[in-house]
Design a protein around this nucleic acid. Structure first.
Lengths: 109, 109
DNA sequence: TGCATATTTCGAGAACTATCGAATTATGTG
DNA sequence: CACATAATTCGATAGTTCTCGAAATATGCA
């Protein structure tokens, strides 16, 4: 992941509705959720949410697939991992002693 | 870390100069860098950078300490770790099989 | 085909963010 | 104290982002 990709991802996650949307989708992996159900759950007008979903999609954080009349959205966990690795690389800065506690804490899951 | 803290942190990191600033500071842990030297390195006017440093500081991502005429800035690695854990918690969503490859990849450092 | 449902795109207004010159504050030194 | 240096705050402008009503597009079904 390049710096510009990370920048775009951070921008996508720096808005309340979008962060909520993304987290909700992560919790609904791997089935995903239809756009309309997301809008209902998050209590946001469908067109507003559609704009946010577009931003998340352009940032690579979600994918969508049409299923008949419904468009099913999914979180892209691989992309989330890439974003975390981007942060972790900096975090370490070549010195493992900084990163070790991080890895330990992540091991919890 | 609460959702609102993460939101603020993502907002802080979603601007090019600020992301560059933060990464530069991480690479300069644990000594840190003076505000003026950051401005010179990043080729940004001192007052503009000062505004960005304020945003990073309010997001908890950097700390500062006056040393005579100089104000020394440092990245807050603990906070970065908290942000990553915030993401990782979602990533797992209670299912370890999703998180395992992530932990493995982070272990690289 | 006609109609209902699901979703997106368009467009305009409001709100927020970035930038930087100028002024200000804080500190160290002669 | 006067002066130089380091950094921040102020204020205006330009640019970007958010929101949502209305219109458009896509699909399924009778």
């Amino acid at each position: 992941m390049q710096s510009l990709d990370a920048l775009t991802a951070f921008g996508a996650l720096s808005q309340e509705t979008r962060l909520d949307t993304f987290r909700l989708l992560v919790r609904h992996e791997p089935e995903g959720l239809p756009a309309g159900e997301l809008a209902r759950e998050l209590e946001v007008p469908a067109n507003t949410l559609s704009t946010h979903l577009g931003i998340l999609a352009r940032a690579g954080l979600v994918t969508s697939e049409r299923r008949g009349r419904i468009i099913q959205y999914r979180a892209d966990i691989a992309r989330l991992r890439e974003l975390m690795v981007f942060l972790a690389r900096d975090c370490c800065g070549g010195r493992s002693e900084l990163c070790e506690p991080l890895v330990a804490e992540l091991a919890c899951c």
